[in-house]
Design a protein around this nucleic acid. Sequence first.
DNA 1: TCTGGGGTCCTAGGACCC
DNA 2: TCTGGGGTCCTAGGACCC
Length: 419
Amino acid sequence: MYALIDCNNFYASCERVFDPKLNGKPMVVLSNNDGCVIARSNEAKALGIEMGAPAFLNEELFRKNNIHVFSSNYALYGDMSARVMRVIFDLVPALEIYSIDEAFVDLGQMPYENLTDLAFKIRNTVYQYTGIPVCVGVAPTKTLAKIANRIAKKRTDNGIFIIDSEAIQEQALSLTKLEDVWGIGRQYTKLLQQHNVHTALDLALTDIGWIKKHMSIVGERMVRELCGQPCYRLEDQPQAKKGICTSRSFGKAVTEFKILEEAIATFTARCAEKLRRQHSAANLMHVFVFTNYHKPEQPQYYGNRVIHFPMASNSTMEMISYAMKALKIIFRENYHYKKAGIMVSGIVPEGQVQTDLFVMDPNRRERDRKAMAVLDKLNRRMGRDTIKVAKMGYNRSWHLRQEKRSLRYTTRWEEMLEV
DNA sequence: TCTGGGGTCCTAGGACCC
DNA sequence: TCTGGGGTCCTAGGACCC
């Protein structure tokens, strides 16, 4: 059996832990740059606020209903997530962290009474230790555990739902709409509805050959999982990423080359950090800049350039020097840039970098490696960008708009909650 | 003034290898 | 008479997830 543990309205719940006045009140959390609604409390959902709704179109609605609005505070959510995961990990044999607010657990052959006890124990302990409410769904496959969790959230009072018999499984499938199945997106919903498939139960009963033909092996696995046949195991060892991207929309449009340089240098430094954290190096870098496509009346431009490194790298200094060259090539005067980013790929393990006989001075690589190790250590201990490359600058004009961010209660001494 | 930021996997087709 | 049988790697495009 698998359990899926999913935090309720996670970002909203994190805010409530440190400001209990918000309990029972409608509230939303906005995306980076205060753009879209990305989390809603139940009260906000009940008021009809849609996921992904642009904030500036809903200001009236927010005001009229006294909805509390927050900028996203990823320092807080990331740290709270780590705490929730640690609490769960202490109670179970193996844990797969699936997303910032979800985890799968493999429960093996545990008997029913123990499953129920464990599910309650997880729910109660996480709430007691972190203040975050979670729901637990238990079923013979991951896809069914997703469905069980959904039912636990929407249709139970105690936040637990266990699929442990064929009768319950069939009932759970018949209560689940097609588009709510894990792996069914917009396109497959359209395709399947044309073939008179409307619920998860209809999908489970669809001819597997037809599924394979129209939805590939991925669809076949999904249908088998719905029938109770496990096709996915617990992945408790996180895999190294195959591509890493750091990109941001700017708080306000950028026209100056120098400011764009600082943004690109900063994004590159983040990508290099992420590479070093997973002990990888990249062979390719993709640099891109955008104007604002929501404003078709302005001149539009999309500039992008791919750089092949002479040797795979994860050195912030080296990568920034390549990124700056790419930016010089793609930059055009007189455009209002709204977004930029860096993507790295061709990722290899740090210890398996194919060396180049002619290009790079091996002494410099070794010097960079040591410098990066010291930089990471200092920045981990003293805070991000305590030591940084000068090109990343001090100009904050391109930074995110975050007008309503709460304090970083758990990661900054100076922002700790005062009682 | 104003619309997020990350990821994964699969398939088909083309170019190449022996 | 009548044109083999195996592979790999890369890219683009399309689907999906949180």
